[in-house]
């Protein structure tokens, strides 16, 4: 094949890439959902396999029904802890509102339990795939929680699976408020941390912010995706910069060891 033909072929490839780059996000999401529909069974089998290997190495390989019962109980405990977490947040919010001598009704939401099929799909994106999809009422841009706190948000759904952008990803931004103060900022992931030791950044704090390590950071409700009062993490350190201050935040949820999460259906309006 002469070089001119090779060049033309390569130009065709560039043309195809340009066309693909110009697809609308919705079109690409549909393509992605279709592909995940094919690949999800792989992931589900992989997760089952990992669990089996894990239980074998820990000497906990028991009868199948005991394992299943244990799994169900774990899900129930996690569900109850997540509900408890939300109730605590409601109590905290109630106190806050009473103090401010105003009352506004909290919008409640339904929790959809989901199992993590795949975590950290790629090297540089903190993402995961769960076993609940549009058939279960999951839609893009819904908050995802664990019993400990905020996990992330849904990005794309297929019929039976959903990809989640974790709060430890740099592109997942959450409007946040610091416990006991009026300090507000934006929480996002830090790029260079390992998956087992993720650190979040709370940016755009005022330079005069009187914050201390150990203070809790909650979602402020601004932006519409994450409701008010979900625990994001705890402040580790504070750095004052030229025009603002930045706090390092340890996420409340164990993002590197997630097994079960809850997708908050904030659009249904009932618990």
């Amino acid at each position: 094949m002469n070089s001119r033909v090779q060049l033309i072929t390569f130009l065709f490839l560039l043309g195809f890439a340009a066309m693909f780059l110009n697809f609308s996000p919705r079109t690409t999401q549909r393509l992605q959902a279709g592909l995940f529909q094919i690949l999800t069974p792989f992931a589900a089998h992989g997760t089952d396999l990992q669990r089996k290997i894990s239980s074998l190495t820990q000497g906990l390989q028991t009868l199948e029904f005991l394992e299943k019962e244990n799994e169900d109980l774990k899900t129930q405990v996690a569900h109850l802890r997540a509900e408890n977490q939300i109730l605590k947040e409601i109590e905290r919010e109630n106190d806050h509102l009473r103090t401010a001598l105003e009352f506004k009704r909290r919008s409640s939401f339904k929790l959809i339990p989901a199992r993590i099929l795949v975590r950290d799909v790629s090297l540089f994106w903190s993402t995961a795939i769960v076993d609940r999809g549009s058939e279960d009422g999951v839609e893009p841009q819904m908050p995802v929680l664990s019993e400990d706190g905020l996990v992330g948000k849904t990005v794309n759904t297929s019929k039976s699976s959903t990809s989640i952008l974790l709060v430890s990803d740099e592109s997942c931004k959450v409007a946040a408020i610091v416990e006991g103060t009026n300090e507000q900022g934006i929480v996002s992931g830090a790029r260079n941390h390992t998956k087992n030791d993720p650190i979040l950044h709370l940016d755009f704090l005022s330079k005069q912010a009187d914050l201390k390590p150990g203070q809790k950071v909650y979602s402020s409700g601004a932006g519409g995706v994450f409701p008010y009062g979900i625990l994001i993490g705890t402040i580790k350190s504070i750095t004052v910069r030229d025009v603002d201050a930045r706090a390092e935040v340890i996420p409340a949820a164990a993002l590197g060891r997630l097994e079960h999460v809850f997708i908050a259906n904030t659009r249904e309006g009932k618990r």
Partner: peptide, 30 residues
């Protein structure tokens, strides 16, 4: 195409400029 669809998070948010556009891997693999 397969690599980008499997690996890249795709947000339907016109204001999001921080994510890679699906399609760049076509050029790379080419």
């Amino acid at each position: 195409v397969i690599w980008d669809l499997v690996n890249l998070p795709i947000l339907d948010d016109p204001q999001s400029t921080e994510l890679l556009r699906p399609g760049w891997s076509v050029i790379f693999f080419g």
